[in-house]
Design a protein around this nucleic acid. Structure first.
Lengths: 221, 221
DNA sequence: TGACTTAGTGTAAAGTTTACACTATCTTGT
DNA sequence: ACAAGATAGTGTAAACTTTACACTAAGTCA
């Protein structure tokens, strides 16, 4: 038992995990194995330990529940409505993570809970206030495409300009002119040719590019 | 005494309060009356009650400690480093608030603690990790001037275009062309003439304007 | 070798942002 | 009463950025 002179809320971290695959923006959810909301889909997350900071806690939960590690993770917002959890007062610090489509190694998790990727178009009803959190993360992602290099976090080590443009078009839900996209992207000076080509399908092979500074999301413009 | 099966961190809210006055961006601080950091300046803030949500808690602390209410308040970031408070694990949800210069009613506070406004140029050493919080709030404020109407939150009900331009110039620390500033501001369609004039000093009187939608900070561009 | 598919490329028009200087209207001092 | 001094108020052209748009290149496959 832990005792305090004043009441303390519980603090959790929850993570909205995005990837782009099969021409869709997808979201990782886990099925809750216990009450409340048993059987409902929810964001991966859990209680913050007293000896780990918030981002470490989010990464730990991410790894435990989904097997995902070493990815881009950013704090989103902190949700603290009084009755957001029916058991006790729970404040959650929400993060969002972006995963390259070639790194989705599901079910390395130890927990017995079901884990699944859902298209943003057809995600199920969510536990707690998790739909709010997902909506806010989605909005933030869309905004950040415009003024940062966050989209690179979805790309594998080598990628073509066409694949990169696909990511933008899928998330922004709008077509972009190919010439203008290439001019813009190359002018940013954030990617460079690897010298390799991708030959696939009955057409001209595409040059492969890599991110110059893959660990940093730059603010552009 | 409050007992929990698992350890719970303490949760506080802290608020960075800005105003623009005397041609300077200023910050409200309170002097700590108790340990730790006794006698050091710090952000107003305090423990979240279990029956109030986070923003309500921030507003309550703001009112109690500074007498300020009804102002613009926005969540900034949540700070949770393991050792940011020497007493116990404390996670703080930081907010920032903007106050019109004609509304600064200091010391309506009941607490005996000293309260003071400090220029951002010469703010004292701060308790805990509060300097980090201030720096981040400052950065956010600067960014938001560019893509939102947040600057209106510093203005009284009626103001001149010159006064509004002063606010931009003080915070951004750069001079702006008067004609271009007016063209830009009026094109945003967010302020309108009140029909009144401000006559003050030995020069032509200035038209007074008011914000069309004063309770909402619009994203522009 | 022709049909199909995606990759790769430049230019002109439209729109936006920047630079820049003079007149208007008031107060104050002589 | 009028000159000096202060801030308010206004338009235009040049520089820069963004958008629209169509053809050739290099592969595979029938």
């Amino acid at each position: 038992m832990y005792q305090y002179e004043y009441p303390h809320p519980a603090v959790t971290t929850d993570v909205v995990i995005f990837t782009v695959r099969d021409k869709q923006l997808k979201l990782l959810l886990i099925m809750r194995g216990g009450e409340p909301y048993k059987g409902k889909w929810a964001l991966p997350g859990g209680f913050v330990q007293l000896d780990e900071d918030l981002e470490s806690g989010a990464r730990r939960e991410l790894a435990e529940e989904t097997g995902v590690s070493g990815v881009y993770l950013e704090q989103l917002y902190t949700y603290g409505a009084v009755d957001r959890d029916p058991r006790e007062r729970v404040i959650t610090v929400a993060y969002y993570a972006l995963i390259p489509s070639d790194q989705i190694v599901l079910q390395a998790a130890t927990d017995a809970e079901a884990v699944g990727w859902f298209s943003m178009d057809e995600s199920p009803e969510l536990a707690f206030d998790h739909q709010n959190i997902v909506d806010m993360a989605h909005q933030r992602l869309i905004s950040k495409l415009d003024y940062s290099t966050i989209a690179f976090q979805f790309m594998p080590e080598e990628f073509t300009l066409g694949e990169l443009q696909d990511v933008y078009e899928i998330i922004l839900r709008e077509e972009m002119d190919r010439r203008n996209f290439r001019k813009w992207m190359l002018a940013l000076d954030q990617i460079k040719e690897t010298g390799n080509e991708k030959r696939e399908g009955a057409h001209r092979p595409a040059k492969l590019y890599e991110v110059i500074n893959p660990d940093k999301v730059e603010i552009i413009k």
